[in-house]
Design a protein around this nucleic acid. Structure first.
Length: 434
RNA sequence: GCGAACGUGGUGAAGUGGUUAACACAUCUGGCUGUGAACCAGACACUCGUGGGUUCGAUUCCCAUCGUUCGCCCCA
């Protein structure tokens, strides 16, 4: 029986792997432009980290975590998100000790959620994200939003909708939650079973419900904006105004609540409207949190975070063709010709590689017809033909596969000649692309 | 967790209750012993996802199961 990948996991190979690389590099570059530093944390964490941070009432904790007991009887979980791990590291390493805020971290790596796979949804997927911890200011909230915005810009994605909302501070939310509870209690018997459950656990989640008949009821529910404290209202106004003056377009969406319990104040999501109409859900999202650091055992510090789903970005970039195609290539394809000694050919191949040029050779003697096909498949710039004559005369025959020009070069001159030739070829390719 | 569609070579994809399962692309071999993208001739399905049932006979019909894809929920 053939062994297949685990459901919801996926292999990324060849050209797709280079797509991932390019996109990840672009994201990292933006994070570094904003002066964030990379944090790498383990994929495995104590389950408690997530029950305490992401929250018992969230779907993620309730039904989507890969949780198991290790041989020592500890309950461990494959991380379903990485914010909690970043905060844990900050707390464990007391990075807050020197009071130099904000602490800025970016991360990139796999996360795991046990869900039904579908378009743009995997059980193991990659998240790229940032956290800025310790500075309580709308400036840093806006920075996170702007950073995400510029990530999408860097990937040349147009048609992005930025949705933002505020959940207010604890006081606002408590008042609002109570108001919602009072309102929905009158309607709950007419609502879907999920909402009945949500009312008990976290009435804010009801706002996110997509059931048609429930939406009618939700329409006239109390609004967060009527329950905001002065401070929260002021903070949100500042956030919105700053976004405006930065020229970042957004829609205020009062139904945006997000599925992780730790958020407060501003929350946001980036949505992409594809030309083909396919929806992938949010490409990324994030928000501000005020209790998370102390819940994980640190001092009372606030933070703001943002994360993107790398698979979704790759998928959107591919379907929109927003980045130019990139084909991998080798500079040289080395061909043993006639009855040459393969060992001699390999020595030359090795030498070319030591010069630092991507080089592949045919490790067997094959008809030239076949070898040229292989060279073409690898997008080789030059064929390097090595037969008995070349070995005897200590030369190489180089064929430019684009122009068909062929020259014989003395081994001693190789490095110099080849540098020049490669330069010319790359110039020519550039020209063509324009 | 709920709902739908689909599972035939490396890939794309026809097809049928009956003995050789189309076609195309890719690959390999030769025509062509050191110069290829063309052409010609060959090669390539010991389980038609897996298990069971109906039948004289099943890749085809039925059931189950697994898997893939898509939708709901939720999110990235």
């Amino acid at each position: 029986m053939e062994i297949k990948p685990v459901k919801g996991a996926h292999d990324v190979i060849r050209d797709e792997a280079s797509d991932y690389n390019r996109i990840e590099e672009a994201l990292i570059r933006i994070a570094e432009v904003y002066a964030y530093e990379e944090f790498r944390t383990p994929v495995l964490e104590h389950t408690e980290l997530f029950t305490r941070s992401v929250g018992d009432s969230s779907d993620i904790v309730r039904k989507e975590m890969y949780t198991f007991l290790d041989k020592g009887g500890r309950s461990l979980t494959l991380r379903p998100e990485v914010t909690a791990s970043i905060i844990r590291t900050i707390v464990n390493n007391k990075l807050y000790a020197n009071q130099d805020f904000p602490i800025k971290a970016y991360y990139l790596g796999p996360v795991f959620r046990y869900e039904r796979p579908q378009a743009g949804r995997y059980r193991q997927f990659s998240q790229f994200g940032i956290e800025a911890v310790g500075l309580d200011s709308p400036l840093i909230d806006v920075e996170a939003i702007a950073l995400g915005y510029n990530c999408l810009k860097a990937l040349k994605l147009e048609d992005i909708t930025l949705k933002i909302n505020t959940l207010g501070d604890e006081e606002s939310r408590n008042n609002y939650r109570e108001a919602l509870r009072r309102y929905f209690e009158g309607h709950i018997t007419n609502m879907c079973p999920d909402c009945q459950e949500r009312l008990k656990l976290n009435p804010l989640r009801i706002l996110d419900c997509k059931v048609e008949s429930d939406r009618e009821i939700i329409k006239s529910a109390p609004r967060i904006h009527d329950y905001l404290s002065i401070a929260s209202k002021d903070r949100f106004d500042k956030t919105v105004n700053l976004l405006d003056s930065l020229g970042i377009k957004f829609d205020i969406d009062e139904s945006l609540v997000r599925g992780l319990d730790y958020y407060s104040e501003v929350v946001f999501e980036y949505h992409f409207i594809s030309s083909s109409g396919q929806t992938l859900g949010a490409l990324g999202g994030g928000g501000h949190y005020s209790e998370l650091v102390s819940e994980i055992g640190g001092p009372s510090l606030v933070g703001v975070g943002l994360s993107f789903g790398v698979e979704r970005l790759v998928q959107v970039v591919a379907s929109e063709k927003s980045l130019p195609d990139y084909a991998s290539f080798v500079t040289f394809y080395v061909m043993p010709v006639g009855n040459v000694e393969l060992e001699k050919v390999y020595e030359i191949n090795e030498k070319l590689r030591r010069f630092g040029y991507p080089t592949e050779m045919s490790y067997e003697i094959k008809p030239l017809k076949t070898l040229f096909k292989k060279a073409e498949r690898r997008n080789a710039l030059f064929a390097v033909l090595i037969g008995e004559d070349e070995i005897k005369n200590d030369t190489l025959t180089l064929k430019n596969l684009r122009t068909q020009e062929q020259t014989t070069v003395a081994m001693g001159d190789i490095e110099r000649v080849v540098d020049q030739m490669i330069y010319e070829v790359l110039q020519a390719i550039d020209e063509e692309e324009k």
